[in-house]
Design a protein around this nucleic acid. Structure first.
Lengths: 160, 160
DNA sequence: AGCAATTATATTGTGCACAATATTTTATCA
DNA sequence: TGATAAAATATTGTGCACAATATAATTGCT
């Protein structure tokens, strides 16, 4: 019935092949749980979670006087144009950002923070603090977890 | 222009409101990176990542002679019928599972592992090991991370 | 028995993710 | 110069997630 002997090897692999033993499921479930905690906070700003991440990038860029390309936002967030193009279109329709083709290189679209987007920054300031409270974590604990996750992310991105 | 004094409090909150300081972004990015590492492995089985998770539940259930309800799969994976119904339909169309209305309670749909689904189990056995290799982690490191993530998930799910 | 509330699943609609491909523009080089 | 390759974004199509709602069946109450 099976290719494996019922004993040693097969059983070990079956234990690995269990939902509760998957790192990835813990990651997947926690990510959705955390996103769910954001949702009501971001709903006050009328933003989805990925839109919020884009706005974080835009607020930072604007603070440095920059107007990043679509591809630069994508590198930052690890998202491609298939995801970003419609998302940015929605943010533009709401007047939070503007998009324009670069005159020097017509292939490039640069994204700039618009007036309403800058105003939204003020209203977003309390989100991180409120979220930590939602998560029941203090800043130190969150920082530690963030660093652990980042370290693994870096390792993954550096390897083939 | 702003409600905040430009100094102390505002600046502290701005630091928190930075992409690289977000726990959530690290979680979000890592989750997608890990899922990306699964993709080629699961493509060999012609499964998406959520489909693989459902199959994990089904293989476990089948090992105990159980045919779980849609709602039980949902509780396990923290997914609702809006996600599961079409996903299960696709798995059924491929002959990996069967769905039938319970005769005792016509509201309930029970899901059972089909022949092809059981056969797929054999081919899936090496996935966890190969993934750890992909991630460059050993079992101990993965186990530690899994427990950390689970602990936080449990805390979140126990709190309001 | 009969009606309201509850339960289980399905449906609809929106917004990501991501692969594959298309389009337009720029760079390269024979 | 003129074909060709490369680059940047957009489009299309599939499959999740999840909110809101619908449908149908069961339970509880009077």
């Amino acid at each position: 019935m099976k290719n494996h002997a019922p004993g040693a090897d097969g059983r070990l692999q079956d234990d690995l092949l269990t939902l509760d033993n998957q790192v990835c499921f813990a990651l997947y479930a926690l990510n959705r749980a955390v996103t769910g905690r954001y949702r009501p906070l971001l709903a006050e700003l009328d933003l989805t979670y990925p839109q919020y991440l884009v706005m974080l990038v835009m607020w930072e860029a604007d603070g440095r006087g920059e107007t990043p390309r679509v591809s630069e936002i994508g590198e930052r967030l690890r998202l491609d144009s298939g995801t970003l193009t419609p998302l940015l279109r929605r943010l533009e329709q709401r007047g939070l950002i503007t998009r324009r083709r670069s005159p020097e290189d017509e292939r490039v679209v640069t994204v700039a923070l618009a007036e309403a987007g800058a105003e939204l920054h003020d209203r977003a300031r309390k989100v991180p603090e409120r979220l930590l409270c939602e998560l029941g974590m203090d800043a130190a604990e969150a920082g530690q977890l963030r660093d652990d996750l980042r370290a693994l992310l870096n390792r993954l991105e550096e390897s083939t």
